[in-house]
Write a protein that binds this DNA or RNA. Structure first.
Length: 665
RNA sequence: GCCGCUUUAGCUCAGUCGGUAGAGCACAUCAUUCGUAAUGAUGGGGUCAGAGGUUCGAAUCCUCUAAGCGGCACCA
């Protein structure tokens, strides 16, 4: 007999061999039906797991949403695999976990799956769910299982089984009597616990076996899975809403920028988009000026040898744009399609992929005293990186981008103070831009790196200490350490914003680098009259203007705060009798520093309201004969239907207040 | 770079069996002077992504190239 303690504190005696399912049934048939899994002493297990000792038991039902969702998604993945093998004999199964919104499964298929295959697979999955097949756990000896997989032609499973670590016995889950997969579990008691209307296969894609480019390309099927149809529908609605705020779509609709094949990965900023950029850059420049940074501008192209010395050539040259330092010879015939003729012998120059070496070169000019440190050198640096083509994505991942970059040259004893000041500055900026919520993480040394272990120990600890000194190394700040995620020359603090729809974006960074000052021989004269190496702090708050503006557009769904909006107000007439007054209003607003346009077109006011609303203009000032006579304007604010009629002077004051950047209020 | 899909007017898209290209919006012109999310009429506009092939004939079938989209890998 075992004593089972339930969450309400009550205890039950159960015989040897009893399971959580038995306890559920003893409590009531309703609970037995609702139970999906169990937690024994906090560990999630199958309902059919026999008790091994006295323990605390909590039955998991759909009310325990996090557990229930994860179980369901995991089961959907198995049902997907079973369905695919039923429809496509000869397809090997590999691996299929739950995800944040569903599940996927990777297959080694005869041919890659396409979207057209999905409806049939969904249908087969529903048949498996309707059949309510019992999911039964079995412990199998490793060698037996490997032999079984090999016999079944499942080479990926066999490889995986052979490499699973430790001596733990391997478990398989049977679906009915005719299918099984290797899995740690736990699982629902049967496929019938899944809601056949609560999942949807969403897309297919390629994926490398074990996530390694050197391995085989598998065919992955993604699905989204929920506990019921209502949740699924809500999820699909969320996806539609997210698609509406996609910066690529809004960028076109609002006429902010465009991309085209001839310069793929580089942005054509249109006047309105560039106005956002200018407002953001001007704001950042004021913040940096106030924080004691000195702005510089450095060369776009430098001799490749400079990049060899910095170490970037060895590690990243395949992603650098390289140009020969020679004047190309053009053939005499001079046809229009003649390519320039290059000798192939010229020295190479590279377009800068980053600003750091150039900043060190400025630092190295002349002799620096310890008294001058810290030196905070900022640059809105335009960089080029030849990214893998499949990586490009709107403004989020581009080949030409401008960083809000800065390097702070410090003595070791100044690091904590500088990092703390940086955290405060970044906090201020994120709040000003509408992101009060963000997380801080520490990315630790990667496998491939420069510098000694002692150096890494020291620089990782310096960041840890610095954040601890600000009191931000706590769970509330999302603090965690990420092994292997650091840059090759330095560990980095990562700052992750949370946007309006809950997505996170890594934007800010702070790195303590001792490698580059060494490689490029940067030094200062210390109190002792000797040369010392400064530490170089690489830091950015926005990351890149391109990507940050994309995040702003999506965060605000295009409805930017007035101070960032490219057009802050439009003065629209109802009929032509107010044209003169509208011109006057526009001129007065413009004189007050408002980015204003007028719309005197011979169009109905309904049409104008619609058009400027879709263009996300924050304020529409409608003027007719009445307003002209009274010297007022009727303000309609984006997202509202009511209008406020007020004297022009009052309207100007209101708009000026809203149009003032947060640091100037 | 890898897997899959896509590419037709400025934009969003239709185009059946291979028979010579169509809509809405936008734009232009004209009419309309209207009070808060689309006024009406008329008109101009396309080497069907590019190159090659099959065919009497290609937007349509095949091959290659490029870009875009969804993932994977990468992201100093």
């Amino acid at each position: 007999m075992f004593t089972i303690t339930l969450p309400d504190g009550s205890a039950r005696e159960v015989p040897q061999g009893a399971t959580p399912a038995d306890v559920a049934l003893a409590i009531g048939p309703g609970l037995a039906k609702a139970a999906l899994a169990a937690r024994i002493d906090g560990v999630l297990v199958d309902l059919a797991t026999p008790f091994a000792q006295d323990c605390a038991l909590a039955l998991v039902t759909a009310r325990d949403e996090a557990d229930a969702l994860d179980l369901a998604r995991h089961d959907y993945a198995h049902v997907l695999a079973e369905a695919v093998q039923a429809l496509f004999p000869g397809t090997q199964i590999t691996f299929g976990p739950s995800t944040d919104d569903g599940f996927y499964y990777d297959f080694a298929a005869q041919r890659p799956f396409t979207d057209e295959d999905l409806p049939a697979i969904e249908g087969e999955m529903r048949r498996i769910i309707a059949a309510n097949k019992v999911l039964r756990r079995e412990v199998v000896a490793r060698e037996t299982l490997i032999a079984q997989w090999q016999a079944a032609g499942e080479s990926f499973k066999a490889e995986w089984a052979a490499e699973l670590p430790g001596d733990e016995p391997l478990t398989v889950y049977h679906s009915g009597d005719d299918w099984f997969d290797m899995c740690r579990g736990p699982h629902l008691p049967s496929t019938g616990k899944l809601d056949p209307a609560a999942f949807k296969l969403t897309r297919v894609s390629g994926a490398y076996w074990r996530g390694d480019q050197a391995n085989a390309m598998l065919s992955r099927i993604y699905g989204t899975g929920w506990l019921n149809k209502k949740q699924l529908d809500a999820h699909m609605t969320r996806l539609e809403e997210a698609a509406k705020r996609d910066h690529r779509k809004l960028g076109a609709e609002m006429d902010l920028f465009h991309l085209q094949a001839e310069a793929h990965g580089s942005v054509f900023w249109h006047p309105k988009g560039y106005m956002i950029w200018r407002a953001l850059e001007a704001y950042m420049r004021r913040r940096l000026d106030a924080a004691g940074y000195a702005e510089v501008k450095t060369p776009q192209i430098m001799d490749a040898r400079q990049w060899e010395q910095s170490g970037h050539w060895g590690k990243y040259r395949e992603n650098m744009f390289v140009v020969p330092d020679e004047i190309p010879h053009v053939s005499e015939e001079g046809g229009e399609d003649d390519a320039p003729v290059l000798s192939g012998k010229a020295d190479l120059m590279a377009i800068k992929p980053m600003n750091c070496p150039a900043h060190v070169l400025i630092f190295r000019q002349g002799i620096t005293s310890y008294r001058e440190l810290p030196i905070r050198m900022a640059e809105f640096g335009c960089c080029h990186r030849n990214e893998p083509h499949g990586a490009l994505h709107g403004l989020m991942r581009v080949r030409q981008f401008t960083q809000d970059d800065a390097h702070i040259f410090v003595r070791e004893d100044q690091i904590v103070g500088e990092v703390a000041d940086f955290c405060d500055l970044l906090d201020r900026v994120y709040k000003d831009l509408g992101f009060p919520e963000y997380a801080i993480k520490l990315a630790l040394r990667p496998d491939k790196r420069f510098g000694s272990d002692a150096m890494w120990d020291w620089s990782e600890q310096s960041l840890r200490d610095a954040v601890a000194a600000t009191g931000r190394n706590t769970p509330e700040w999302g603090w965690e350490e990420l092994p292997g995620e650091g840059a090759f020359y330095a560990p980095k603090l990562e700052f992750h914003l949370t946007d309006a729809v809950g997505r996170t974006w890594q934007v800010g960074t702070m790195q303590t680098d001792t490698v580059l000052p060494e490689r490029l021989d940067a030094s200062y004269i210390g109190e002792d009259g000797e040369k010392h190496r400064p530490v170089m702090l690489h830091r950015a708050i926005l990351g890149s203007f391109e990507r940050f503006i994309a995040i702003l557009i999506e965060h605000y769904a295009g409805k930017l705060p007035v101070w960032l909006a490219p057009v802050q107000a439009v003065v629209a007439t109802i009929v032509s009798d107010a044209d003169a007054y509208a011109r006057e209003v526009t001129a007065r607003l413009r004189a007050a520093g408002i980015r204003v346009e007028s719309d005197l077109r011979n169009e109905k006011i309904n049409y104008k309201v619609r058009e400027h609303s879709l263009a996300k203009v924050p304020h529409l000032l409608v003027v007719g004969k009445r307003e002209a006579d009274e010297g007022t304007v009727a303000i309609r604010t984006l997202g509202e239907e009511r209008q406020r009629v007020m004297p022009l002077a009052e309207a100007i004051a209101l708009l000026r207040a809203e149009a003032t950047p947060p640091d100037l209020r």
